[in-house]
Structures are given as C-alpha cells and as structure tokens.
Amino acid sequence: MNFKRQNREEVAVNLTPLIDIVFLLLIFFMVSTTFTKENHLSIDLPEATAEAANAPIQALEILISASGEYSVNDQSLVNAQLQTLKRALQKMLGGRETAPVVITADAKTPHEAVVKAMDAAGQLGLVNLSITTRQPAKSE
C-alpha cells in the first residue's frame, strides 16, 4: 500500500493580535487609574489632663510626625530645615501679621523638632502658640 503523503503546512502562532490586546489593556488601565498622593501624617498624640480649648478658625497648624517630618496646614514640606518651615508659615499667613499657631506632634517626635517649629514661629513674630494633646483613657 502506497499512502500519499499530505503536505503539511508549518504551524505558526501569530502573536501580533495578542500584543495589540495587551497594549490596549495597558493604555486603558493607565488612563483610567487615578494617582493621588496622601499628605496626611500618622500621628499619635501625647496625653494631658487639661480641658481642650477650641482652636481659632484661622490658626496655622504644624503637624510633626514621629520621624520629624513637618506639614503646615496639611501640606507636607520637602525637608525639615528651619528656613523651609519659616517660608511655609509665611506663605500660609498670606499677608497677615499674626495668627495663632497650633503644633500637633506625635508622642515619639524628637524634642528638637518641636523646638524648631516653635523657633520658626517665634522668628516670624507668632507668639500665640498651642500644643495639642489627647485626653487620657479613663480607667474606673
């Protein structure tokens, strides 16, 4: 028996449509994704037993993280230099000569960072300073 051999074409997988689909998905996810940068610092406040006072509405708030990073009115600063902190406070003053300053520092913040914030405010003539704390947990 003499069987006739069939001419078999070489099987090849065309990857071009697959690559097109992958690029379309990549572009779709790049366009539909939103990139947000959170400026909030994680802060654990120290405790104090004094009654809380209402903070003035137009107060400048300086947040200091446990690692000594500064944020003025929820805007993070690029570094922890005294001049950078002073420039940020001047910018937030917006032409006002004085404003109350509320310093919110983490319980584990180095003392130097808090003193530097107080010094920056003092050099700008801001003398109405407050340091925020939290009420201790009541144990009965």
Rank of each mutant, 00 (worst) to 15 (best):
T109C: 05
M92K: 03
H111I: 09
V22K: 10
P100F: 05
K116E: 07
E140S: 13
V114P: 03
K4R: 13
S32C: 12
V114C: 02
E97A: 14
I131L: 11
F3K: 12
L89C: 01
E112K: 02
I103R: 00
R87M: 11
R134N: 09
Q123G: 05
K86F: 10
A88W: 02
A59V: 02
M30Y: 12
T84F: 06
V102W: 03
A117T: 02
E61W: 10
N73L: 10
N128W: 13
A121N: 03
A137C: 03
E61I: 08
P110A: 09
V101L: 00
A52C: 10
Q90F: 09
A105C: 06
D20F: 15
T16C: 09
V11L: 07
M92N: 01
G68F: 00
A137Y: 10
K116F: 07
H111K: 15
P56M: 04
I62L: 08
H40M: 11
V127C: 03
H40W: 09
I64D: 01
G95M: 03
M30I: 08
Q123N: 09
A66W: 01
A50M: 11
E51W: 01
E10N: 13
K37L: 08
L60V: 00
D20Q: 14
N2A: 14
Q123H: 11
L82V: 06
A59D: 02
A99P: 05
A99Q: 02
A105P: 04
E51I: 07
L45I: 07
G94F: 12
